[in-house]
């Protein structure tokens, strides 16, 4: 399924491996949390896992060093738990790639980025309805938001007081 990030649409190098599916010897795979160790034991290829809307980010902390990617799933674009899960994962120190998977729409893209996601994985159908140009436009729809401490470079609150920022930085 298509991936979308700040530069536009891309193919996906990662493969989702279902629990009843054999792991490929090589290549980057996204597996359920129970199969992380198994996937790491392969000779090569990176490992990622999924975190559902009910998932517990703390449970992934011991794996942070091994995981190159966490895919936080959105059951529906209106279910905003993934935004808080992403912020928690980043606050807990996860520095790998964060993916929003499931149903998210282009209007949410700037929110996803601000909460710490790197990209979104969208359905082919959605990619047809909302082509690349929409996402690129949505990404720059609001130049600066107010909130501080987000994963974006700066905020209105910071922009207003550049001197103070340098002092406390």
């Amino acid at each position: 399924m298509p991936l979308v990030d700040d530069r536009g649409f891309h193919g996906d190098r990662w493969r989702h491996i279902a629990d009843d599916e054999a792991l490929p010897e090589t290549g980057d795979v996204i597996v359920s949390q129970g199969r992380i160790a198994e996937a790491l034991a392969r000779p090569c290829g990176r490992v990622g896992t999924e975190l559902g809307p009910d998932g517990d980010p703390e449970a992934l902390v011991p794996h942070f060093g091994d995981l190159a990617l966490i895919a936080v799933t959105f059951r529906s674009f209106a279910d905003g738990r993934g935004f808080s899960l992403a912020r928690r994962l980043r606050a807990l120190g996860f520095t790998g790639e964060l993916r929003a998977a499931g149903h998210v729409i282009c209007d949410q893209y700037p929110y996803l980025r601000a909460c710490g996601f790197d990209h979104a994985e969208i359905s082919t159908d959605l990619a047809k309805r909302q082509p690349e140009a929409y996402w690129l436009q949505a990404a720059k729809s609001i130049t600066l938001g107010y909130q501080r401490g987000m994963a974006r470079s700066t905020s209105i609150f910071d922009g207003r007081h550049p001197a103070e920022r340098r002092l406390t930085a």
Binding site: F77, F83, C115
Partner: peptide, 13 residues
């Protein structure tokens, strides 16, 4: 008002 406007985390509560 400012802080809550288009809050990236809290727009789909």
């Amino acid at each position: 008002r400012q802080w809550s406007s288009l809050h990236p985390e809290f727009s789909f509560l």
